[in-house]
Amino acid sequence: MTDHHAAPPRRSANTRRFFNSAGLHVVLIALSFTLFLPFVWMVLTSLKSLEEVGLESWLPGEGGWNFSNYIEVFRQIPFARYFINSIFVATWVTLLQVFTSSMAAFAFARLNWPGRDKVFLLYLSTMMLPGLVMMIPNYQIMITLGLVDTLPGLILPAAFSAFGTFLLRQFMLTIPSALDEAAEIDGASKWRLFWDIILPMTRPGLITLAIFTFMGNYHSFFWPLVMLRTQERYTLPIGLLYFDSSAGQETNLLMAAVTMSIVPLLIVFVVLQKYLIKGIQLGAVKG
C-alpha cells in the first residue's frame, strides 16, 4: 500500500505500525510464555530420573537426561496399543459426529418446519443431564447390544450428541439467507443446497467441531474406564493412570507418557488450523 504523504508523516506512521506490531508481539509472547510453562515443566520432568523428580531445579542434574524413560513407558504398559486404540476411536467418533451433526444442524438452521425451535431446545436439554447418571442405563444397553468391552461400544455413544448439532447450527446461522433464496430460485434441491453451498461455507465450523470432538474424545476417561475390561483395548487416559496409582508414583514416566500422547493432537491441530483460519492472509480482519 503506497503512502502519498510527505516523508515525516510516513515515518511516524511506520513507526507507529512498528510499535503496534511489536507491542502485539510482546503481549503474545508474554501470554504464550505463561501458558506454555507448565508444558515445559512437564517435558523436562519426563527426562529426569525418579529420585530427582521432587527436586527444585527443573533441569535434570546428576541423574542425567533419561531419554530412556520414553522407552520405559512402552515396557511398563502396552503403550503403542493404547495409542492406536485412542486414535482409532477418536477418528471414528469425529467422522460420525461431523457428518451427522452437520445434517441435523442444517435442519435446525436452514429448514423451516413446525416446532423447530422447541425441538431444538429439547435437543439441547439432552446435553444438560450429568453423564454419570446415564452410565448404568447406557451400560445395560451395551450389554443388550453385546458391545461391552469392545471399541465400537466406545464409539457409538460418543458419536451422537447434541453438541455438534448446536455448534454447527450457530455457525450456519451466520450465513446470509440470501444464498438460500438464490438457490431456491435456481431450483436446487435441499440436499444440493446443503452439500454444495452451505457445507463449504461452514468449513471453519466443521474444522472446529472436528478438532473439538477429536480432542475431547481422545481425553475421554470415565466411560472407557467403565466399558473396557481387557487391557488390550484400553485407551490412553486409562493407561496414564497406571503411573499415578498407589502402586507407585513414577512422575517422570507419567510425564513421558503424557508428552507422547500429545503428538497426534499436535499433528491434527497444526494440519487443520490452516483450513480454520481462512482469510487471515487477506488481511481481512481488523479491530
Binding site: 501458558l35 506454555f36 507448565p38 508444558f39 512437564m42 480432542m215 475431547g216 481425553h219 475421554s220 476417561f221 487416559p237 496414564l240 493412570l241 503424557v258 500422547s261 500429545i262 493432537l265 499436535l266 491441530f269
Partner: peptide
Amino acid sequence: YTPHFVAGVA
C-alpha cells in the same frame, strides 16, 4: 492451544 492438548486426566 497447548494447555488444551494436555486436557482431561492429564
